[in-house]
Simulated assay, not measured.
Amino acid sequence: MTIKTALAATALASCLLAAPALAQSVNLYTTREPALLNPVIESFTKDTGIKVNAVFLKDGLQQRVQAEGANSPADVMLVVDVGEIQAIADAGITQPVQSALVDKTVPAALRGAGNNWVSLTQRARIVVVSKDRVKQDAISYDELADPKWKGKFCIRAGQHPYNNAFFAAHLARNGAEKTETFLKAIKANVARKPGGGDRDVARDILSGQCDIAIINTYYIGLMSKATNEQKGWYEAIKPLKTTFAGGGTHVNVSAAAIAKNAPNKDSAVKLIEYMLGEKAQTLYADGNFEYPVNPDVKEAAAVKLLGALTPDTTPLGDVAKNRKAASELVDKVGFDN
């Protein structure tokens, strides 16, 4: 070997040693708002060294992954509704999340069949009442059908996804006949045509238009931090401990699945596991006053404000599969008319 060749070989070896190793990465497709998810993504990358390539979509996530087919770069799909995640699983574009940590941390009712999706945070749908005019602290959902609330109950449209999921949970637990009776009874109690948003029912309690309403818990949290008229709406209501008779509280979830053709499966599992850890659960849940699914997280903002949550044990996969039938019952009884 000539001196010139030896020097060239030495230089090449030095370059290879100096070159950084190929960084690990994971590709995330999500319909979550960037502001809610970015703190967790940044924390994950800082703690693990794995870069997250996030694609934020308003809608059409399932259709995009299907169109991309076997060459899809998606590793993790993260959405904000159990109906969405179940539809993704039913489309055959997921694979099981194989993780002892997931099995230990997430209750079976909050996972899809065969672990084809996993819940990350929870939003409870509970009853609120006028702090001044109603003197009770707990209620079952079926008590909303009591005639004593006639002309006093407010609710957003029955076909809205929040209520559709709630009615689907009632259907999964009680069957079509009882759910139809329930829908007719609470429709008979409304103070106004179902509509508006969840925060609007708090406004209407303050005005005296209604005494009782149903609302997602994170809206209560957001109103509690408001610096406008919504703070007054919050101060007018009292959240009740709300459960199905003999069961727990209805929840909807944000949830994640691993894509069937995930090119970075190991990193996908690590991201989901990280999002279930105490640090990420606190960051993620506090971003929108949602409840963590990790039972070891005791200091989340929603827990501090509203107390601990005991979710109903009806599998959310069963709830999702009853959403179409629940929608049909809403139309059948003319709930939104």
Score class of each variant (00 low, 15 high):
K135W: 04
Q136W: 05
Q136M: 06
Q136K: 09
Q136C: 06
D137K: 13
D137C: 12
A138T: 14
A138W: 09
I139W: 08
I139E: 06
I139P: 01
I139D: 04
S140K: 11
S140I: 10
Y141P: 00
Y141C: 02
Y141Q: 02
D142Y: 03
D142G: 15
E143W: 03
L144F: 11
L144Y: 09
L144T: 07
A145P: 09
D146E: 11
D146C: 15
D146K: 15
D146L: 13
P147Y: 02
P147A: 10
P147E: 14
K148L: 08
K148D: 11
K148M: 11
K148G: 10
W149S: 05
W149A: 04
W149V: 02
K150N: 12
K150H: 12
G151Q: 01
G151W: 03
K152T: 02
K152L: 07
K152C: 06
K152Y: 03
F153V: 15
F153M: 15
F153N: 04
C154P: 14
C154Q: 11
C154N: 08
C154L: 09
C154I: 14
C154E: 13
I155R: 04
I155P: 00
R156A: 08
R156T: 15
R156K: 07
R156D: 13
A157P: 04
A157E: 10
G158S: 06
Q159E: 08
Q159R: 14
H160C: 13
H160A: 14
P161T: 13
P161W: 11
Y162H: 15
Y162I: 13
Y162C: 11
N163C: 08
N163T: 10
N164S: 04
N164A: 14
N164F: 04
N164K: 09
A165T: 13
A165V: 02
A165E: 01
A165N: 05
A165K: 01
F166D: 01
F166G: 00
F166T: 09
F166H: 07
F166R: 00
F167R: 05
F167G: 01
F167S: 00
F167T: 00
A168V: 05
A168E: 03
A168I: 00
A168W: 06
A168Y: 04
A169E: 09
A169G: 10
A169N: 10
H170E: 13
H170Q: 13
H170K: 12
L171K: 03
L171D: 10
L171S: 09
L171I: 01
A172Q: 01
A172W: 00
N174D: 05
N174C: 06
G175S: 03
G175L: 01
G175P: 00
G175H: 01
G175E: 03
A176N: 12
A176K: 05
A176D: 01
A176T: 12
E177W: 07
E177Q: 14
E177S: 13
K178L: 11
E180H: 12
E180M: 05
T181A: 10
T181D: 15
F182A: 01
F182L: 05
F182S: 02
F182D: 02
F182E: 00
